[in-house]
Write a protein that binds this DNA or RNA. Structure first.
Lengths: 299, 299
DNA sequence: CAATCAAAATACTTAAAAGGTATTAAGTTG
DNA sequence: CAACTTAATACCTTTTAAGTATTTTGATTG
């Protein structure tokens, strides 16, 4: 069997005339006759009744005509879909996110991606930094979102956005009345920090900032996620430092106050990470969207 | 594009190794390399990443693999279905029946056909003799069932069954008490006859029988179908002559009585008709079942 | 009813494509 | 860096498809 034979067969079946079909196919009549004979022999079925008027299709031939057209449609679809996949416009992209990452930036990026590449199915997986790197290496995911990365030889990264830190305070706290808070004033404040696993983490970052400012933070509680941290702030456990995107998380009794007099560049990056040698067109598409997003943010 | 290329591609994709795939395909490695290159060029998409370990499929390649397998399944199905159609085991058969024909024999034949050829879809069309012949010529139907045929050059026929005639009488009629009725006693009886169109018809047949017996029938009413005729008998309009299969039609107040002393061979044939030169495998299948049915009847 | 016509089939030749052998290039591994 | 594995290339052979010329077949018609 051969697609050529199918093509020829369809032409003959539709023209009901070998000569005319051969003309349409831009070949001469005898090879077409032979191809049809071969096809019939291969199938072991008469596809046409030969009449002095031309070729009259048989029942079996009509059945085969249906199927043949079907096959051609599928071949065309295969070509088209493969080309779209090759251009990173069709397929499945497994993306890892971290718990509090879903608050602001990541959904915006994902939305932009979906709009630009509607035929790529994005599958989200929540996992922490270590799990993301493991999953990237095992090819279970193609991209991960994370903060505070240490460079790795086989993992590349791309900063998506950079955020200032905010202080989260209970409304009963005097700080909540201020326009902003001096970072050095945090010296005596009981701090709620998170997450307590996955080094380097946000805790390490805050510790380092305090060190730079010349004091050691008073840690009231370490927790695992931003939501819990803010909930503890609401309960009066202490204050908490978060990237500004956390303002998406509005709890009663909680205020967000800008920090001033930060000891060093205090911005926190949100990055996406991927295998350094990954040539996946879907990844390329995704990074395109990430860069477009950054450009739009900058304006 | 070519099914050969697809076959080769699937082998390479599954082996992830051109050399091994070539072995499986019983060709040498270089032509396989070339075919894969040609396929990639034709699609304009990289299907594999070449590594020193072998061939690693790309996302687009994985997409194409799916589609390619799909295409092969369809090709196989096309072959199989076409062969079954060629053997008269798959397809659609348009069959014409006449009104009262559905009472006994025809359903039995159709049932036997369905059991033997379950994948042939039988479509029934009710039409009278003239319409059947017209429909056969126009190829709207492949087989028709009918009685009392006049030979035609392009229409062949095959007797399905042959039935004796019965007298249908009202229970109030003296004949209904008899074991049987002498045909000559019908001389004075008001007869209900049918159908009144489509010559030669059952009316002509009964007239001829009477003529042979040396009398002219007293016609009380001509109607168009057996059910109406029996209904009129039930109402006391007169008596009626029917083939024995009509006993399937049981109406209150109506009895069926055998006839004796028929003037000539009085059996009535039920035949199926078809185009004389029709080589349709479905027709062949159908006639096979008809002949089996006759054989079973004869026993 | 033979002549004619139109169609498919066959015989033979030419061209194209697939396959084979030998070899090279590239990239990893001990 | 030498050995090994794998894909790629060069070049030749075989197979298959296509082309030209001709024949066969079966219906139509004068």
């Amino acid at each position: 069997m051969d697609l050529r034979k199918l093509r020829y067969f369809i032409a003959v079946a539709e023209e009901e005339h070998i000569g005319r079909a051969a003309m349409l196919l831009n070949i001469s009549q005898p090879p077409l006759t032979r191809q049809i004979h071969q096809l019939e022999e291969e199938l072991g079925v008469a596809l046409f009744n030969r009449t002095p008027k031309g070729m009259e299709i048989t029942e079996a031939g009509a059945m085969f005509l249906d199927e043949a057209k079907n096959i051609f449609a599928l071949v065309e679809q295969a070509t088209e879909r493969t080309q779209r996949a090759g251009a990173g416009r069709l397929g499945r992209l497994d993306v890892a996110i971290f718990g509090s990452g879903i608050l602001e930036t990541i959904p915006k990026v994902l939305l932009a991606f979906r709009q630009r590449f509607p035929d790529v199915k994005v599958v989200l997986h929540t996992m922490d930094k270590a799990a993301q790197i493991e999953a990237l290496r095992q090819r279970r995911i193609t991209v991960g979102f994370n903060r505070l990365l240490s460079p790795l030889p086989d993992i590349a990264s791309e900063v998506v956005t950079s955020e200032n830190l905010l202080l989260v305070v209970n409304d009963s706290h005097p700080f909540s009345k201020q326009q902003c808070v001096d970072f050095n004033d945090l010296k005596a404040q009981p701090l709620i920090l998170f997450p307590n696993q996955g080094r380097p983490n946000f805790i390490d970052r805050v510790n380092k900032l305090c060190q730079e400012a010349g004091f050691t933070p008073t840690v009231s509680q370490e927790v695992n996620d931003a939501v819990t941290a803010v909930a503890l702030v609401a309960s009066g456990f202490g204050v908490c430092i978060l990237p500004e995107s956390a303002t998406a998380l509005q709890l009663p009794g909680v205020s967000y106050v800008p920090l001033t007099n930060m000891p060093m560049d205090s911005k926190v990056d949100l990055s996406c990470i991927y295998r350094d040698n990954d040539k996946s067109p879907l990844l390329k598409s995704f990074l395109t969207v990430v860069r477009e997003f950054k450009k739009a943010q900058a304006e």
